[in-house]
Write a protein that binds this DNA or RNA. Structure first.
Lengths: 119, 119
DNA sequence: CCGTTATATAGATAATTGTCTATGCTATTA
DNA sequence: TAATAGCATAGACAATTATCTATATAACGG
Protein backbone atom coordinates (compact mmCIF):
# COMPACT_ATOMS: atom_id res chain seq x y z
CA UNK A 1 0.00 0.00 0.00
CA UNK A 2 1.75 3.13 -1.20
CA UNK A 3 -0.51 5.71 0.44
CA UNK A 4 -0.74 6.52 4.13
CA UNK A 5 -3.90 7.08 6.14
CA UNK A 6 -3.33 10.83 6.15
CA UNK A 7 -3.53 10.88 2.37
CA UNK A 8 -7.08 9.56 2.44
CA UNK A 9 -8.40 11.87 5.16
CA UNK A 10 -9.01 14.87 2.86
CA UNK A 11 -10.83 12.60 0.42
CA UNK A 12 -13.22 11.23 3.03
CA UNK A 13 -13.66 14.72 4.49
CA UNK A 14 -14.66 15.97 1.07
CA UNK A 15 -17.38 13.32 0.92
CA UNK A 16 -18.43 13.86 4.54
CA UNK A 17 -20.89 16.64 3.79
CA UNK A 18 -24.40 16.35 2.43
CA UNK A 19 -24.07 19.29 0.04
CA UNK A 20 -20.81 18.00 -1.41
CA UNK A 21 -22.21 14.49 -1.77
CA UNK A 22 -25.09 15.92 -3.77
CA UNK A 23 -22.69 17.95 -5.90
CA UNK A 24 -20.67 14.87 -6.79
CA UNK A 25 -23.87 12.97 -7.49
CA UNK A 26 -25.12 15.74 -9.77
CA UNK A 27 -21.82 15.61 -11.64
CA UNK A 28 -22.45 11.91 -12.23
CA UNK A 29 -24.84 13.09 -14.95
CA UNK A 30 -21.98 14.90 -16.64
CA UNK A 31 -20.14 18.18 -16.58
CA UNK A 32 -21.99 21.11 -15.05
CA UNK A 33 -21.28 24.81 -14.69
CA UNK A 34 -21.16 26.42 -11.25
CA UNK A 35 -24.27 28.49 -11.83
CA UNK A 36 -26.22 25.38 -12.74
CA UNK A 37 -25.00 23.57 -9.66
CA UNK A 38 -25.98 26.53 -7.51
CA UNK A 39 -29.61 26.31 -8.61
CA UNK A 40 -29.88 22.91 -6.97
CA UNK A 41 -29.12 24.20 -3.47
CA UNK A 42 -30.35 26.76 -0.98
CA UNK A 43 -26.88 28.14 -0.38
CA UNK A 44 -25.15 31.33 -1.45
CA UNK A 45 -22.64 31.53 -4.28
CA UNK A 46 -19.63 31.93 -1.94
CA UNK A 47 -20.69 28.82 -0.05
CA UNK A 48 -20.80 26.82 -3.27
CA UNK A 49 -17.39 28.21 -4.17
CA UNK A 50 -16.12 27.04 -0.78
CA UNK A 51 -17.40 23.51 -1.40
CA UNK A 52 -16.03 23.39 -4.94
CA UNK A 53 -12.61 24.38 -3.61
CA UNK A 54 -12.66 21.49 -1.14
CA UNK A 55 -13.71 19.07 -3.87
CA UNK A 56 -11.13 20.44 -6.30
CA UNK A 57 -8.26 20.54 -3.82
CA UNK A 58 -8.90 16.93 -2.86
CA UNK A 59 -8.88 16.01 -6.52
CA UNK A 60 -12.35 14.48 -6.51
CA UNK A 61 -13.62 17.11 -8.93
CA UNK A 62 -11.92 18.75 -11.88
CA UNK A 63 -12.57 22.39 -12.75
CA UNK A 64 -12.35 24.00 -16.17
CA UNK A 65 -12.78 27.65 -16.96
CA UNK A 66 -14.50 28.82 -20.12
CA UNK A 67 -14.69 32.58 -20.15
CA UNK A 68 -16.40 33.65 -16.97
CA UNK A 69 -17.95 30.25 -16.48
CA UNK A 70 -16.53 27.38 -14.48
CA UNK A 71 -17.38 23.84 -15.50
CA UNK A 72 -16.93 20.96 -13.08
CA UNK A 73 -16.75 17.23 -13.55
CA UNK A 74 -15.89 14.21 -11.42
CA UNK A 75 -12.36 12.82 -11.44
CA UNK A 76 -12.78 9.07 -11.76
CA UNK A 77 -9.18 8.23 -10.93
CA UNK A 78 -9.32 9.79 -7.48
CA UNK A 79 -12.67 8.18 -6.76
CA UNK A 80 -11.08 4.88 -7.74
CA UNK A 81 -8.33 5.42 -5.17
CA UNK A 82 -10.95 5.53 -2.42
CA UNK A 83 -12.68 2.47 -3.82
CA UNK A 84 -9.39 0.60 -3.79
CA UNK A 85 -8.79 1.44 -0.14
CA UNK A 86 -12.27 0.23 0.78
CA UNK A 87 -11.64 -2.94 -1.19
CA UNK A 88 -8.45 -3.55 0.78
CA UNK A 89 -10.30 -3.01 4.04
CA UNK A 90 -13.21 -5.14 2.90
CA UNK A 91 -11.11 -8.17 2.08
CA UNK A 92 -10.04 -9.25 5.53
CA UNK A 93 -6.50 -10.39 5.33
CA UNK A 94 -3.26 -10.58 7.27
CA UNK A 95 -1.52 -7.51 5.95
CA UNK A 96 -2.97 -4.20 6.97
CA UNK A 97 -0.98 -1.03 6.39
CA UNK A 98 0.15 -0.98 10.00
CA UNK A 99 1.44 -4.53 9.95
CA UNK A 100 3.98 -3.52 7.36
CA UNK A 101 5.54 -1.11 9.81
CA UNK A 102 5.97 -3.53 12.70
CA UNK A 103 4.52 -6.30 14.77
CA UNK A 104 1.06 -5.80 16.19
CA UNK A 105 0.93 -9.18 17.89
CA UNK A 106 -0.89 -8.85 21.19
CA UNK A 107 0.59 -10.36 24.33
CA UNK A 108 -2.15 -9.27 26.71
CA UNK A 109 -4.46 -11.50 28.67
CA UNK A 110 -7.37 -10.68 26.40
CA UNK A 111 -5.59 -12.17 23.41
CA UNK A 112 -3.65 -15.06 24.97
CA UNK A 113 -5.02 -16.43 28.24
CA UNK A 114 -8.71 -16.41 27.44
CA UNK A 115 -8.21 -15.46 23.84
CA UNK A 116 -10.76 -13.91 21.57
CA UNK A 117 -13.18 -16.67 20.51
CA UNK A 118 -13.92 -15.09 17.16
CA UNK A 119 -10.50 -15.27 15.56
CA UNK B 1 -30.90 4.28 -5.19
CA UNK B 2 -32.62 3.69 -1.88
CA UNK B 3 -30.36 5.74 0.38
CA UNK B 4 -30.14 9.52 0.57
CA UNK B 5 -26.99 11.60 0.78
CA UNK B 6 -27.56 12.25 4.46
CA UNK B 7 -27.36 8.53 5.16
CA UNK B 8 -23.82 8.38 3.85
CA UNK B 9 -22.51 11.45 5.65
CA UNK B 10 -21.89 9.69 9.01
CA UNK B 11 -20.08 6.91 7.18
CA UNK B 12 -17.70 9.25 5.39
CA UNK B 13 -17.25 11.27 8.57
CA UNK B 14 -16.24 8.12 10.39
CA UNK B 15 -13.54 7.52 7.80
CA UNK B 16 -12.49 11.19 7.72
CA UNK B 17 -10.02 10.91 10.59
CA UNK B 18 -6.51 9.51 10.53
CA UNK B 19 -6.87 7.65 13.82
CA UNK B 20 -10.11 5.99 12.80
CA UNK B 21 -8.71 5.06 9.39
CA UNK B 22 -5.83 3.33 11.15
CA UNK B 23 -8.23 1.57 13.51
CA UNK B 24 -10.23 0.18 10.60
CA UNK B 25 -7.04 -0.82 8.85
CA UNK B 26 -5.80 -2.61 11.97
CA UNK B 27 -9.09 -4.48 12.15
CA UNK B 28 -8.45 -5.68 8.61
CA UNK B 29 -6.07 -8.15 10.21
CA UNK B 30 -8.97 -9.53 12.26
CA UNK B 31 -10.81 -8.95 15.49
CA UNK B 32 -8.92 -6.96 18.14
CA UNK B 33 -9.64 -5.97 21.71
CA UNK B 34 -9.77 -2.31 22.74
CA UNK B 35 -6.66 -2.53 24.87
CA UNK B 36 -4.69 -3.96 21.97
CA UNK B 37 -5.92 -1.22 19.67
CA UNK B 38 -4.95 1.38 22.23
CA UNK B 39 -1.32 0.26 22.20
CA UNK B 40 -1.05 1.33 18.57
CA UNK B 41 -1.80 4.99 19.28
CA UNK B 42 -0.58 7.87 21.36
CA UNK B 43 -4.05 8.68 22.61
CA UNK B 44 -5.78 8.17 25.95
CA UNK B 45 -8.29 5.42 26.61
CA UNK B 46 -11.29 7.78 26.62
CA UNK B 47 -10.24 9.13 23.25
CA UNK B 48 -10.11 5.63 21.82
CA UNK B 49 -13.53 4.94 23.33
CA UNK B 50 -14.80 8.09 21.61
CA UNK B 51 -13.51 6.91 18.25
CA UNK B 52 -14.88 3.41 18.70
CA UNK B 53 -18.29 4.87 19.46
CA UNK B 54 -18.25 6.84 16.21
CA UNK B 55 -17.19 3.76 14.27
CA UNK B 56 -19.78 1.57 16.02
CA UNK B 57 -22.65 4.04 15.70
CA UNK B 58 -22.02 4.41 11.99
CA UNK B 59 -22.03 0.62 11.68
CA UNK B 60 -18.57 0.39 10.17
CA UNK B 61 -17.29 -1.57 13.17
CA UNK B 62 -19.00 -4.21 15.26
CA UNK B 63 -18.37 -4.48 19.00
CA UNK B 64 -18.58 -7.60 21.12
CA UNK B 65 -18.15 -7.76 24.89
CA UNK B 66 -16.45 -10.68 26.57
CA UNK B 67 -16.28 -10.03 30.29
CA UNK B 68 -14.56 -6.74 30.82
CA UNK B 69 -12.99 -6.79 27.40
CA UNK B 70 -14.40 -5.34 24.22
CA UNK B 71 -13.56 -6.94 20.90
CA UNK B 72 -13.99 -5.01 17.68
CA UNK B 73 -14.16 -6.09 14.05
CA UNK B 74 -15.02 -4.50 10.73
CA UNK B 75 -18.54 -4.74 9.35
CA UNK B 76 -18.12 -5.70 5.72
CA UNK B 77 -21.72 -5.02 4.74
CA UNK B 78 -21.58 -1.36 5.70
CA UNK B 79 -18.23 -0.91 4.00
CA UNK B 80 -19.83 -2.43 0.90
CA UNK B 81 -22.56 0.20 1.02
CA UNK B 82 -19.95 2.92 0.67
CA UNK B 83 -18.21 1.03 -2.13
CA UNK B 84 -21.50 0.75 -3.97
CA UNK B 85 -22.10 4.48 -3.76
CA UNK B 86 -18.62 5.19 -5.10
CA UNK B 87 -19.25 2.71 -7.89
CA UNK B 88 -22.43 4.55 -8.83
CA UNK B 89 -20.59 7.87 -8.84
CA UNK B 90 -17.68 6.39 -10.77
CA UNK B 91 -19.78 5.08 -13.61
CA UNK B 92 -20.87 8.32 -15.23
CA UNK B 93 -24.41 7.93 -16.34
CA UNK B 94 -27.65 9.80 -16.83
CA UNK B 95 -29.39 8.98 -13.59
CA UNK B 96 -27.93 10.55 -10.50
CA UNK B 97 -29.92 10.49 -7.28
CA UNK B 98 -31.08 14.05 -7.84
CA UNK B 99 -32.35 13.40 -11.32
CA UNK B 100 -34.90 10.98 -9.91
CA UNK B 101 -36.46 13.82 -7.95
CA UNK B 102 -36.89 16.26 -10.80
CA UNK B 103 -35.41 17.86 -13.84
CA UNK B 104 -31.96 19.34 -13.61
CA UNK B 105 -31.82 20.44 -17.23
CA UNK B 106 -30.01 23.75 -17.45
CA UNK B 107 -31.52 26.57 -19.47
CA UNK B 108 -28.81 29.12 -18.80
CA UNK B 109 -26.51 30.67 -21.33
CA UNK B 110 -23.56 28.62 -20.12
CA UNK B 111 -25.33 25.40 -21.08
CA UNK B 112 -27.29 26.43 -24.17
CA UNK B 113 -25.95 29.41 -26.10
CA UNK B 114 -22.25 28.69 -25.95
CA UNK B 115 -22.71 25.28 -24.44
CA UNK B 116 -20.14 23.30 -22.49
CA UNK B 117 -17.78 21.74 -25.04
CA UNK B 118 -17.01 18.70 -22.89
CA UNK B 119 -20.41 17.12 -22.73
C1' DC C 1 -18.50 -7.75 49.33
C1' DC C 2 -14.26 -5.41 48.09
C1' DG C 3 -10.56 -4.32 45.24
C1' DT C 4 -8.89 -4.31 40.63
C1' DT C 5 -9.17 -4.02 35.72
C1' DA C 6 -11.40 -2.62 31.40
C1' DT C 7 -14.37 0.43 29.29
C1' DA C 8 -17.70 4.35 29.10
C1' DT C 9 -19.36 8.97 30.23
C1' DA C 10 -19.11 13.95 31.67
C1' DG C 11 -17.23 18.31 31.30
C1' DA C 12 -13.77 21.55 29.52
C1' DT C 13 -11.28 23.39 25.67
C1' DA C 14 -8.80 24.46 21.44
C1' DA C 15 -9.17 23.65 16.57
C1' DT C 16 -11.85 22.94 12.56
C1' DT C 17 -15.94 23.49 9.74
C1' DG C 18 -19.93 25.47 7.16
C1' DT C 19 -22.37 29.39 6.51
C1' DC C 20 -23.21 34.20 5.79
C1' DT C 21 -22.25 39.31 4.11
C1' DA C 22 -19.14 42.30 1.92
C1' DT C 23 -15.78 42.90 -1.37
C1' DG C 24 -12.29 41.84 -4.98
C1' DC C 25 -10.93 39.88 -9.32
C1' DT C 26 -11.53 38.46 -14.16
C1' DA C 27 -13.54 38.15 -18.48
C1' DT C 28 -17.15 39.48 -21.68
C1' DT C 29 -19.87 43.07 -23.84
C1' DA C 30 -21.87 47.45 -25.04
C1' DT D 1 -13.19 51.92 -21.58
C1' DA D 2 -17.06 51.39 -18.59
C1' DA D 3 -20.54 48.41 -17.01
C1' DT D 4 -21.93 43.87 -16.06
C1' DA D 5 -21.78 38.92 -14.94
C1' DG D 6 -19.59 34.95 -12.85
C1' DC D 7 -16.64 33.35 -9.54
C1' DA D 8 -13.20 33.75 -5.59
C1' DT D 9 -11.54 35.65 -1.28
C1' DA D 10 -11.79 37.90 3.39
C1' DG D 11 -13.71 38.27 7.72
C1' DA D 12 -17.19 37.07 11.21
C1' DC D 13 -19.57 33.63 13.71
C1' DA D 14 -22.11 29.59 15.42
C1' DA D 15 -21.76 24.64 15.41
C1' DT D 16 -19.09 20.57 15.41
C1' DT D 17 -14.99 17.86 16.43
C1' DA D 18 -10.99 15.66 18.75
C1' DT D 19 -8.63 15.73 22.66
C1' DC D 20 -7.74 15.79 27.55
C1' DT D 21 -8.69 15.00 32.89
C1' DA D 22 -11.78 13.32 36.18
C1' DT D 23 -15.23 10.21 37.32
C1' DA D 24 -18.64 6.54 36.74
C1' DT D 25 -20.00 1.91 35.44
C1' DA D 26 -19.37 -3.00 34.74
C1' DA D 27 -17.38 -7.43 35.42
C1' DC D 28 -14.27 -10.59 37.35
C1' DG D 29 -11.33 -12.62 41.34
C1' DG D 30 -10.30 -13.42 45.98
Amino acid sequence: MKYSYADYVPLFKAFADETRLKIVDLLTCGEMCACELLENFNITQPTLSYHMKILSDSGIVKGRRNGTWMYYSNNGEVIDNISNLLFEIRSNKDKCMSKDDGNIQCSRKCCTEAGPPNK
